[in-house]
Amino acid sequence: MPILELKNVAKTYHTRFNANAVQALTDISLSVEAGEYVAIMGESGSGKSTLLNLIAALDKPTAGSIDLNGTELSTIPESRAAKFRREHLGFVFQDFNLLDTFNVKDNILLPLVLSKTPVPAMEKRVLALAPQLGLADKLTKFPYELSGGQQQRVAAARALITDPALLLADEPTGALDSHTADELLTLFGKLNQAGQTILMVTHSAVAASHAQRVLFIRDGRLFHQLYRGDLSQDELLVKISDTMTAMLAKQTPTQAGKTASADAAHTGKEAD
């Protein structure tokens, strides 16, 4: 049974006085199974951030339904939305969003503090989680004393401390250099292998190639999806790049593949 299911989701934004309507999403239907690692890709303005906000219960769809762990998100009152997010979702953002006046341990524990979790339970969780993310010796340090990669690990620990049903990552490697980004993505892979369900929005084909499945959005609609299957990361990366090329050229994925083969024949080289 899917942990997340969207059915015919649409989102329309209206300008002042409802003079104009902007259709951000149209007829989006998808599901995510427990334990999956899914990446969402699309150009700026494609609707992927809007989609993430809807899944995060930060906004409500104009039409359709979004079910997370048996709860229809549009039925959650605004007064309970923050509590629902803390209990069911974990968030990792591009900009870390750590509190500089809190040390690493306190930053990680913040969601549990807000949930009024007993102190002994908080201590037990953070001491078990910190070593998994390489933070056992960083708990008393402050964010400004850490590298970007270490700060993102703290953000990941904060997202995971509540044992969320779904980890949402919004451009998690956007502020990191390539080496540090690879370390974070390797960590995500290990978390997923341990059973954590992950949904990641990214512009990076390299980041998306770490996922099990990649969804592509163009002009507010699902354009295509790729499954890793038996593909290596490099092989999936090639397919992701071909699909992104197809989106930019407004072709179907099949047409893009034919174009790549024709180009290869013209240059006398094999298509990658």
Rank of each mutant, 00 (worst) to 15 (best):
H203F: 02
F93A: 03
E145G: 05
G174L: 09
T71N: 10
K124I: 02
E5M: 11
T254E: 14
V201F: 09
A246R: 03
D163P: 04
F142V: 04
A136F: 13
D230P: 03
D106V: 12
A159E: 06
G42R: 11
L133R: 01
T26H: 11
L146Y: 00
V238A: 14
M122T: 01
V214P: 09
K258T: 05
R153I: 02
V113N: 09
G35E: 07
Q151S: 05
M1Y: 04
V113Y: 15
L89T: 01
L52F: 05
E171R: 08
G90R: 12
H203T: 01
L184I: 15
K258G: 07
E33I: 03
E78G: 07
F188T: 08
L168I: 03
G189E: 08
A157P: 00
G174T: 13
L248D: 07
D263F: 15
R158Y: 06
L109E: 02
S65W: 10
K116G: 13
K60D: 04
L168R: 02
S204M: 11
G195T: 01
L187M: 15
A24G: 06
L139W: 09
K7W: 07
N192E: 05
A194Y: 15
I108N: 08
L109M: 12
L52M: 15
E235D: 07
T101K: 09
K11M: 05
S44M: 11
P131G: 13
N107G: 03
M1I: 03
F17R: 11
S31N: 13
L58K: 04
N69G: 13
L129Y: 07
K60A: 11
A21H: 03
V214R: 11
D100V: 06
D100L: 07
P111T: 01
H224T: 03
L187R: 00
L110I: 00
Q193C: 08
N69Q: 04
S65Y: 03
H266I: 10
V238K: 15
D242C: 06
L215I: 14
